[in-house]
Design a binder for these strands. Structure first.
Lengths: 137, 137
DNA sequence: CGGAATCCTTCCCGATACTG
DNA sequence: CAGTATCGGGAAGGATTCCG
């Protein structure tokens, strides 16, 4: 059993009440960590323009291992962000497609991605400066 | 040397060109993964209303270890999202405060958090359904 | 083709102890 | 008070092999 399913993203150690009015921070955090997952974001983006097959996705995200692609797709399917459709042809064919929920997620993600793009220079500059100060010591 | 600095978030294994027009996906991904980091988000949120001291933050996020709080704050400082101010009093006092950049990040993060709140039920329902189907097998 | 199972390495992160 | 240093368990994830 190397395939754990229910990836770590979804079940967090549960920080006990950072503040009273956010009793469901855990749930939110589990969604945020999906966004923090590089592979999940890449997959979601590459599914923007219609359904894709497994190996099609694998070619588009060439650096991903098939293990991680499988796990990522299962995670997205579990969260209801992606559908998995099997065509019992031979050879077999499986299509993955964004659900409405998945498409809805794209928008805040793109907003965040846009912010990241807009401030990337600033952040990288800050990193270089920090590292230089710290190497000097 | 157990303290690596330059946390994994910031230097990613570099997926070689998911698609040509996004040469800087890596950079963006490194920012997204900060958002995926539970502790970073908690710290940023808890710094919303003004500067806080180290142990003050530690109390607010009671489940965090002081090691992770230190590492998280260093990461945020390195990215230019947080400033660290030392008052050479005795006993020592250190204040952490969001920069303009950090405050700017809050908005897309809150948007994402809002989306997560709005669709949490839907997602959790999807998870339960998926798990039930899968336990049956 | 689209996976599942196994092995194996890396490194995250919590617990603990010590310091200025 | 605000950290640093060190150790160790466990999870993440790549490479490889086998299957329907």
């Amino acid at each position: 059993m190397g395939t754990s399913l229910k990836p770590a993203h979804t079940d967090l150690p549960a920080p006990p009440r950072p503040h009273p009015d956010h009793a469901d921070c855990r749930g939110v955090a589990s969604v945020l960590s999906r966004v923090g997952d590089k592979w999940s974001v890449f997959v979601i983006m590459n599914l923007s323009d219609g359904p894709k097959r497994f190996n099609e996705l694998k070619r588009m995200i060439s650096s991903i291992s098939q293990r991680m692609l499988t796990l990522t797709l299962r995670g997205l399917e579990r969260d209801g962000l992606v559908t998995r459709t099997i065509f019992p042809t031979i050879p077999p064919r499986v299509d993955y497609e964004l659900t409405d929920l998945g498409r809805g997620l794209q928008q805040p993600v793109k907003a965040l991605g846009q912010w990241a793009m807009d401030h990337l220079m600033q952040i990288e500059a800050a990193r270089r400066q920090f590292d230089r100060r710290n190497d000097g010591d």
